[in-house]
Design a protein around this nucleic acid. Structure first.
Lengths: 135, 135
DNA sequence: ATGCACCTTGTAGCAACTACAAGGTCAAGA
DNA sequence: TCTTGACCTTGTAGTTGCTACAAGGTGCAT
């Protein structure tokens, strides 16, 4: 599949795809006889993953780490384990935060439906004190 | 509370706080006699919210919208309702994606514990086809 | 043969910070 | 009293992760 097709399928600009290739986020595609990039389904899956992860607030560095986990066949389990655990903590936190936010949004919808103004606690939903940044 | 204290409490650089003030993300703080910014607990809550929302992948524009919902006392419920619904859809999607990612990470941990190499499906966890971008 | 998708390199813009520098004020401790 | 460190201002410039162009060229379908 060519770059335009991949771009459309993933909602990514062709230029961004080339940028990811330059940055080694996406492996270089095969080339056709006419030097067009020729993407596989693996590329499609990886790019979809990258875009999702970025939307979820992971940095490029974190995306790289996550992608590296895919290739973990060649690395000892202990190393992977630690990395996965760290990611896990972060993912769980994000889920908890988003759930709180979702609940609050639901609350707002219900009170709006009832046409009651009601207290807006949307800020409070995410405002419990941040845990001290770990060193 | 002064800027340094607020910075520490929220894990934000003082310069970023001043930046948020310039950008009207955070309301300007009161000033002490000596012209130091003097923050309230409301500022603390708002800034914590902003940082969390940013970590969760919301853009500044979206954060502005979410913050605006807090002041919805003065706006008709219908307007708020629509906005909340849109945010809700996005939040739900993020939760679903993160849950898939979490499950996959859990899977990896378990197979690592068993010291089996096991298939890594981490990319697949977020790689189901993206829904066509709505216009 | 015209137009569109692709190729390259390069430059420059945007968003959301982050990091200085220069020059000044304020307040607590040795 | 003097120094140190946190704060103040304005301003400039760097970083990340794209995004947008320009210029000049190739491939290919209608």
């Amino acid at each position: 599949m060519r770059i335009g097709e991949l771009a459309k399928a993933t909602g990514t600009k062709a230029e961004t795809i080339r940028y990811y290739e330059r940055e080694n986020i996406l492996p270089a595609a095969d080339r056709t006889d006419s030097n067009y990039r020729d993407y596989s389904d693996d590329h499609l899956a990886t790019l979809t993953f990258v875009r999702r992860a970025r939307e979820l607030g992971f940095s490029m560095a974190q995306v790289r780490e996550l992608l590296a986990l895919s290739d973990h066949d060649d690395k000892p389990c202990q190393d992977v384990d630690q990395l996965v655990q760290r990611q896990m903590v972060e993912v769980e936190r994000k889920i908890a935060d988003l759930s709180a936010l979702r609940d609050e949004l639901g609350q707002m919808l219900r009170s709006c439906r009832a046409d009651k103004i009601g207290e807006c606690r949307i800020v409070e939903s995410l405002a419990r004190p941040l845990p001290p940044r770990c060193a």
